[in-house]
Design a protein around this nucleic acid. Structure first.
Ligand SMILES: [Zn+2]
Ligand SMILES: [Zn+2]
Ligand SMILES: [Zn+2]
Ligand SMILES: [Zn+2]
Lengths: 160, 160
DNA sequence: GGATGACTTGATATAGTATAACATTTGCAC
DNA sequence: GTGCAAATGTTATACTATATCAAGTCATCC
C-alpha cells in the first residue's frame, strides 16, 4: 500500500486490474493491444498520475524503445479512444482510467497546487443531456474537469 | 440579425453589451481595460466563435498592431482571469463570454463537425461540489465541455 | 515637481504539444 | 500466397504557449 491520488490503495492490484481490463476488452472487441500500446498503458498505470506525452516518450526512450512523438501519440489515441486512458485537457496530459470496463463519464479533480488528479464519476450527465437536447444539440462525450485544492495541499497550506 | 452559434440573435447588441459589461466591471474593480485588451475582446465578440490565439494575432497584425504572441496571450489571460472570455480547452481556443456580468460556471457545447461553440449554464455545480468535499477536495473552478453534434450539422448529416 | 513602486507593454528567443506525410511491415481473410 | 486493412517506422513540420529582460505608463506620497 502507498499513497497515490488522494488516498491509500493497493497499487499492484490497480496496475494488474487495469491491464486485465484492457486485455479483456480488446479480446472482446477484436482490438489489438500491441507492444507499444501495452507498454504505454503499463507506464500510465504504474505511474498513476497525469503524464505528458513527452514524459512517456522519455521513459520509452530510456528503455531503448523506438521513440518518436508519433509512437506515443498513436498509442495514446488508441488508449483514449477505447476508454483505457483519458486526456486531461487542462494539463495537456494523459492518465490511465480508474474505472476500466465500466462505461462512464469521468470527472477529474485537479489540484492546482500539486497537479495531482483524481478520477471520480459524473452525477449529472442526464441533466446536461436534456438541457442540450432542448436546443437541438446531441452530446456524445462530456469532459468535466474541476480545479481546486486536494486534501494534502489544503493541509500544507493551513499549516503555513 | 444573423446566424451565430446555434441560433439567430441581434449581434450588434451582443457586441455592444459585451463591451459595456467589461467596461463596467473594470470600472467597478479598478481594472485597466487597455488598448490591446480592449481590441482582443472586441475581436472575440465580433467574431462570436472560438478563436485560436494565433488567429487573433493574425488579425491584430493585419491592422498594423504590434503583434507578437505575448501580446495576445497577455490580453487573453486578462480577459479570462476576469471572466470576459473563456478558454475552450478542447480546442485550444478562446471565446467571449456569453453571459458577462453574471457569476457563472460555463458549460460549452462543442460541435465535433464544425467546431461551433455554444455557451450555456451548468445545472450541476452544487452536486459536484458535495461529492468532491466528501473526499476533501475543494473545487474552485469547474470546466465542462460537451462534444457532439450541433443542430445544423445534424440536419446536414441526415440529409446526406 | 520628483521619487517610488506596481503594473503594463515591447521585443527576442525558446519551450512544449501535436500532426502531416509517406514508406514499410504486420496480421488476418480469402 | 495474394490482397487488403491496420499498425509501425521515420523525418519533418505545424501549432500552442511561456521565459526573460528592457522600457514605458500610471497613481501615490513626500
Ligand atoms: Zn494505483
Ligand atoms: Zn475513466
Ligand atoms: Zn461565460
Ligand atoms: Zn456543427
Amino acid at each position: 500500500m502507498q499513497t497515490v491520488g488522494f488516498g491509500q490503495h493497493d497499487h499492484a492490484a490497480c496496475v494488474g486490474g487495469g491491464m486485465k481490463a484492457a486485455e479483456d476488452a480488446c479480446e472482446a472487441q477484436g482490438l489489438r493491444l500491441t507492444k507499444g500500446r501495452r507498454r504505454v498503458l503499463e507506464i500510465l498505470l504504474q505511474e498513476h498520475r497525469a503524464m505528458g506525452a513527452y514524459d512517456i516518450l522519455g521513459m520509452l526512450s530510456d528503455e531503448g524503445f523506438a521513440a518518436q512523438p508519433p509512437v506515443v501519440y498513436r498509442a495514446l489515441d488508441f488508449l483514449v479512444a477505447n476508454g483505457f486512458a483519458h486526456k486531461i485537457q487542462k494539463l495537456n496530459a494523459y492518465i490511465a482510467c480508474a474505472h476500466p470496463g465500466d462505461s462512464h463519464t469521468p470527472v477529474f479533480l485537479i489540484c492546482r497546487e500539486c497537479e495531482t488528479v483524481a478520477e471520480t464519476a459524473a452525477p449529472l450527465q442526464s441533466t446536461l443531456g436534456e438541457v442540450a437536447e432542448k436546443i437541438g444539440f446531441k452530446i456524445e462525450n462530456t469532459i468535466v474537469e474541476a480545479e481546486g485544492m486536494c486534501p494534502t495541499c489544503r493541509d500544507t497550506e493551513t499549516a503555513v
